[in-house]
Design a protein around this nucleic acid. Structure first.
Length: 484
RNA sequence: GGUCCCAUCGUCUAGAGGCCUAGGACACAUCCCUUUCACGGAUGCGACAGGGGUUCAAAUCCCCUUGGGACUACCA
């Protein structure tokens, strides 16, 4: 047995990969990277009702997109497979039997009605619900009787009453009074293991050394430790992370917008930005440089310095960060990513080169990729709607500027960016000196005519992308609307 | 109801008894830069939940209160 760090992420495929699960996966991944350990992916599909293959695929894809590659898992295999719980069903009964044989577990024939009744009683008396142990000492005769009746037993773990203490990697010492736990079911009457049992068996068999998960699992931990102890297995280290909450401090759910990693991607968030953002929820870099790759974060990662409180998921900073990533990204890659968001435009109008140029000059104010769609309409089509700029254009100033601009444009080689840039600069100076037009007013006239807007990308860049023909056409059209 | 967790600017956080008249980032405001929007730069606004202790000294340790969260299944 080695002391190598082995961590895991064990999502259940009853939905797309949740952003919270992604963060848990990240912290596990970081811990593995930092310690030279192994990162395991296990799919917990015990609940056949809610499991769908599409979700399994989504989990795989999302994790990969985030750069959280696993060393062992359902697809890549590994020494301790299978890594899909539904393929491990024959394993659990064996261990349940061991517990039965050793007296750590017993069969329970209670019906749902009986159990419900116990619960109601507990609520009525303001007591915590603890199973009555009604079936702990049933006689063999009684057992026979139940079996004859066709009752199928569940198997309950016999909880030893004591104070259970463990040292949590992020929260410190945690104490529990196990007499409040109640003998919980480990094998359902249908033969399937319960979550608490299956995880322990799997983690034990997969030699998971450190379990980093959300604090919603804290109350499961004593149960799981009890099982490890009963089995004589080494108890792993636990670390419980605070939760990610919505701005209203409730659990992050669909009604707050995106919750799955793939939802964020559809909204135009970059997975690099997402994972970076989520890393900062509960963890801070030692050099206060916040924009970092996962590998850089791993270098600096200290698990005991994770914040133990919950954190609220606010979009402001995510948006800012996403914008930072968009600005820094390689143009060709960015263009590839942006194309799907350009739905509705005829991309064949632009060469790849011009498309990249367009992306280059429009990327700066973007906060999400989705915003590209509203930023680029004037790069496409012959004409441009002038309603927005009608008044701006209908002035002496615009008329003068556009007439001059037209002559200039007719003489330009539109691949000569520098020439255009200089001519435009001269034009601004000239009109400023001659008529007192402010530089921005001069440009507004041109921008208005060419784009139908008063704001947008760099004008020189726009011109080189749309070319001479459209420039002249649109300028003439704009001129024709001027009545002054 | 019970058990458990948590508590620094609006948000994410730095802070492990004196370095704190509490630092950074996002957001917001103002200014600068500028062919627009933006980017970038500068400045500003802005917090130790409350109350008790411990100590020469507390954001940091302890207790109580308050507030938030999780769990309370033969779901995972």
């Amino acid at each position: 047995m080695s002391d190598k760090v082995r961590v895991r992420i064990a999502p259940s495929p009853s939905g797309n990969l949740h952003i919270g699960t992604a963060r848990t996966a990240l912290f596990n991944y970081l811990y593995a990277k930092k310690t030279g350990g192994t990162f395991v992916l296990r799919i917990e599909d015990t609940d056949a009702e809610r499991t769908e293959q599409a979700y399994v695929d989504n989990i795989f894809d999302s994790l990969k997109a985030l750069g959280l590659n696993w060393d062992e898992g359902p697809d890549v295999g590994g020494e301790y497979g299978p890594y899909t719980q539904s393929q491990r069903f024959d394993i659990y009964p064996k261990y349940a039997q061991i517990l039965l044989d050793k007296g750590y577990a017993y069969e329970c024939f209670c019906t749902n009605e009986e159990l419900e009744h116990e619960k109601e009683e507990a609520v009525k008396n303001h007591k915590p619900y603890v199973y009555s142990r009604k079936c702990l000492d049933i006689t063999p005769e009684q057992r026979e009787q139940y079996i004859k009746e066709g009752r199928k037993p569940s198997i309950r773990f016999k909880v030893e009453h004591k104070e259970l203490v463990f040292n949590d990697m992020v929260k410190g010492e945690l104490k529990f009074d196990t007499s409040l736990i109640g003998d919980f079911v480990i094998m359902k009457s249908n033969g399937a293991p319960t979550y608490n049992f299956a995880v322990v068996i799997d983690d034990m068999l997969m030699k998971i050394s450190h379990i980093i998960r959300g604090e919603d699992h804290i109350s499961n931990t004593p149960k799981q430790i009890l099982i490890y102890e009963a089995l004589g297995a080494k108890v792993p280290e636990f670390g419980h992370l605070g939760m990610i909450l919505a701005p209203d401090r409730s659990k992050l759910s669909k009604r707050h917008g995106a919750t799955a990693v793939s939802d964020f991607v559809k909204e135009g968030y970059l997975t690099d930005a997402l994972i970076n953002f989520v890393a900062l929820l509960g963890w801070a870099p030692s050099d206060s440089v916040e924009i970092k790759t996962v590998d850089e974060i791993a270098q600096d990662f200290r698990i005991n310095e994770i914040s133990s409180s919950n954190s609220i998921f606010e979009y402001d900073k995510l948006n800012w960060m996403n914008g930072q990533y968009i600005k820094k990204m390689d143009i060709s890659k960015l263009t590839d990513m942006i194309i799907p968001f350009l739905e509705g435009y005829d991309l064949s109008e632009l060469s790849r080169e011009k498309l990249e140029k367009m992306v280059e000059i429009t990327r700066e104010p973007l906060t999400t990729l989705k915003e590209i769609k509203d930023a680029v309409p004037y790069f496409f089509g012959e004409h441009v709607p002038l309603d927005e700029v009608k008044e701006l254009l209908n002035t002496e100033l615009s008329k003068n500027v556009l007439n001059k601009f037209l002559t200039l444009a007719q003489g330009w080689d539109f691949s000569d960016e520098e020439k255009i840039h200089n001519d435009l600069a001269d034009l601004r100076t000239e009109f400023k000196e001659k008529y007192g037009y402010k530089p921005k007013e001069t440009m507004w006239a041109i921008r208005g005519a060419i784009t139908g807007r008063t704001r947008g990308a760099d004008m020189v860049g726009i011109l080189t992308v749309i070319g001479k023909e459209k420039t002249i056409l649109r300028t003439k059209e704009a001129l024709s609307t001027i009545k002054v």
